[in-house]
Design a protein around this nucleic acid. Structure first.
Lengths: 341, 341
DNA sequence: GTTAGCACTCATTACTCACGAGTGCTAATC
DNA sequence: GATTAGCACTCGTGAGTAATGAGTGCTAAC
C-alpha cells in the first residue's frame, strides 16, 4: 500500500502519540504537537481516509483515532526507524550478562530474561536451547549404585542433561566402562533424530552380553532426549500492570493465564523459521493474546540457531525501541555463546 | 483464651460462612443457617463480645462481621477439624504423581506443584531440595574437550548437579581418572558444610602434580555447590482471580509481584524448623502478603527433610481442607522418595 | 486543496436519592 | 438474669439525571 507523505506523517504521529499517552489521539493534538503547519480540519480529512484504508480505528464517534492492527503493521514495516541501544548501552548489557563468577549457559539465559524485562518494561520470555536440535558431544554413564546409573549427555550447544536409569540387573564398573566407550563412539556427533533403529541395532550387535542393561539404558536415554525439553523462562510478568490496557481485571487475567500456560508459549517461541519476528494483535494465532504483540529474535550457540528471546506486551508498544533492544541482545548472546563450554 | 461453647459455635459459623460467601456475615444469617435455636439479637450480643476479644471485625457499621487474623488463628488452632482426602483420593494423588514414564525427582516435584494448585484452587509453591543440605554420594568428572571438564555431583537426596569447569591446562583421560578416584574417595559422604580447608588441603597433598587443575576444579565445584540452589516452583498463580479479594487491581498486583520475587519466596519456604506451618495475614513478615495466608509442609527424601510444599492464598481460605490436602501430599511425596534414585 | 464554523455524538463525572442489610440499644418476656 | 422483639440509625450500593468536554463530520467560504 502506497501512502502519501502527509498521510505517513499523520499515521506516524498517531502511533507515536498513542504509544506515549494511551489515549485516542484527535486532530487538534496532531496539529498542535506534530504537524503545526496543517489545520485540524485537513488532518481530520486525512484521518478519515486512513480509517477507510483500515489503518486507523475509532473507539467511538466522539473519540480520537487509534491505530488498528494493520496500522501498527504499516508503521513497523514502512515508517518506524529502529532505535538501537548506544554502543555504551550494549557494552553494559554484555557486562551485565557475564557479571557473575558462574557463567553457565543456564545462568546467562536467566540473567538475559531478567535484563530484557528490566530494560523494556514488558514481560520477557526466553526459550532455552533444546537437546533435540543439538548433536551429542559426549555421553557418559556414571554408576551410582549397583542398580542405579546416571547418564550425562553433553551437546555441542553446551546443554548438559542427566538421565537416571534403573538397571534390571546389577552393574559393575567394568561393564559401565565398556558400555560407555561404545555408546560414546557410536552416538557422539549424532542428533537425536539421527538415532534410529539402524544405529541402535548396530550398537546392540556389539553388546550381546549386556543386552538387558543396554536396552534399559538406550530406551530411557532416548525417551528423555526425544521429549521436547526446551523451556521458557519468564520475567516481568507483573509489568503489564503498568499499562492501562490491563486495568480491566479480565484483560490482566487472560494475559496472565496465557503466560502461565508454558506449552503454548513454548510453541510460539520454538518457531525459529525467522531470525526475527513481530506479531501484532490478531496476527497471533492464540485468541488469548489477540490484543497483545510479540516481538522475538533467535540467538545462536556455536553459530547454530539455538533459542529465542522475546517480549510480549500490549499492541501499544514501543516497537522501535523494543526491536532495537532485542536485536542487540540477540547479537550479544550469540557472541557470548560463540565458543561454548 | 477460653471461649464458651456458644461463642465457639458462632465463631465457627462466621468463619465457615465467610469462607464460602466472601460476604460479611450478619446475625440473621447465622440464626437462619447455622444456629436455628437462638435469635439474631442474642447472636448480636455474642458477636459484640467476640469483637471485643479481637476475634471479629466489622468492615463498617452497617455490615456483618468478618473474622480477624486472630479469629482465623483461633479457628485453625481450636475449632477446625482437618478435612483429609479420602483413601481413594490419596491413591489417585499417588497415581497422578507417578503416571509418566520418566519419574525423575524434578518431574515429580513439578507434577506435585501443578497437582496442588489444581486440587486446592490456590497458588501452589514447592521448594526443591537443596544440594547444600545433602551429602555427596558420587562426584564424577567428565572430560568434554582438552580444556573442558564437566563435574557431575549426585547427592543422597537424588539431586544431580552439573558444573562446567574450564581447565587452565590441557587434561587427558588418565589425569581425569586419577582426579576422579581421589575426589570420589575423599568427598563422598560429606555435606557441603563438611568440606572445609582440612579436607581440601588433604586432597591437595595427594595431588601435587595436578595442583592447578585441581584448584580450578575444587573452587568451581565448591562455589557452585555452596550457593543456595533450592528453587521454588509455582503453579496456579492466576487462581487468585477467582477470589473477590483480588478484584482490586492493586491487590492482585501486589500479590503477583510478591510471587514473582523468587528470593523472598525461597526464604519463606526454606524455613523447615516445623514440619507443618500456617501463617495468617499479619503473621507474615512480608508486608506484601499481610492479607494472605500461607500453609506449608515439608517432605522427606530418604527419610531426611528435603523440601517444602505449600500454598498461598487469601486469608479467607478453606484451612481445614487445604491443611488436610497438604499434609497428605507431603506424606505421599515422602513415601515416593523413601527410596530415591 | 485547505480551513473555519457549527451542530452533533457520546464517554465521563458528579450529584442526588431511594433502598436495604445490618447494627446497637431499650424494654418486654421467659 | 438471660433471651428476644422492636425500632431508630448507619452506611454502602445502585439507579437515574444532568452537566461537561473532547472530538467528529459536514458545509461553506477562502
Amino acid at each position: 500500500m502506497e501512502l502519501g507523505e502527509r498521510k505517513r506523517k499523520i499515521l506516524k504521529a498517531i502511533v507515536t502519540d498513542y504509544i506515549e499517552t494511551a489515549e485516542p489521539v484527535g486532530s487538534r493534538t496532531i496539529a498542535k504537537k506534530y504537524l503545526t503547519d496543517i489545520s485540524p480540519a485537513t488532518i481530520r480529512n486525512e484521518m478519515a481516509d486512513l480509517e477507510d484504508l483500515g489503518l486507523l480505528e475509532q473507539p467511538h464517534t466522539s473519540a480520537g483515532r487509534v491505530p488498528s492492527d494493520r496500522g501498527y503493521r504499516y508503521y513497523v514495516d514502512q515508517i518506524m526507524e529502529i532505535k538501537y541501544p548506544s554502543p555504551q548501552e550494549i557494552e553494559k548489557i554484555k557486562y551485565m550478562l557475564q557479571i557473575q563468577t558462574i557463567n553457565e549457559l543456564d545462568k546467562i539465559i536467566k540473567r538475559t530474561t531478567k535484563l530484557i524485562s528490566d530494560i523494556t518494561k514488558y514481560t520477557s520470555a526466553v526459550l532455552t536451547p533444546s537437546v533435540r536440535k543439538s548433536s551429542i558431544r559426549s555421553l557418559q554413564l556414571i554408576r551410582v549404585s549397583d542398580y542405579d546409573i546416571v547418564a550425562v549427555v553433553v551437546t555441542d550447544t553446551g546443554i548438559i542433561k542427566n538421565v537416571v536409569i534403573k538397571s534390571p540387573n546389577a552393574v559393575d564398573d567394568s561393564k559401565i566402562l565398556k558400555l560407555n566407550n561404545l555408546l560414546n563412539e557410536k552416538l557422539s556427533g549424532l542428533t537425536i533424530n539421527d538415532i534410529g533403529l539402524t544405529v541402535i541395532s548396530d550398537i546392540q550387535s556389539h553388546m550381546r552380553e549386556y543386552s538387558e542393561i543396554f536396552s534399559a539404558i538406550i530406551s530411557v536415554v532416548y525417551e528423555s532426549l526425544k521429549e521436547d525439553d526446551a523451556e521458557v523462562y519468564l520475567e516481568g510478568t507483573t509489568n503489564i500492570f503498568e499499562y492501562p490496557e490491563y486495568d480491566d481485571k479480565d484483560k490482566a487475567r487472560t494475559f496472565l493465564s496465557f503466560i502461565e500456560d508454558k506449552k503454548s508459549l513454548t510453541n510460539i517461541f520454538s518457531d525459529d523459521t525467522n531470525k526475527f519476528c513481530v506479531y501484532i494483535g490478531c496476527e497471533n494465532e492464540n485468541d488469548k493474546i489477540k490484543d497483545c504483540s510479540i516481538v522475538k529474535a533467535t540467538y545462536n550457540i556455536a553459530d547454530k540457531t539455538a533459542g529465542t528471546i522475546g517480549i510480549i506486551g500490549p499492541k501499544r508498544m514501543d516497537y522501535a525501541r523494543v526491536i532495537g533492544i532485542l536485536k542487540s541482545i540477540s547479537n550479544v548472546l550469540s557472541e557470548i555463546f560463540e565458543k561454548t563450554l
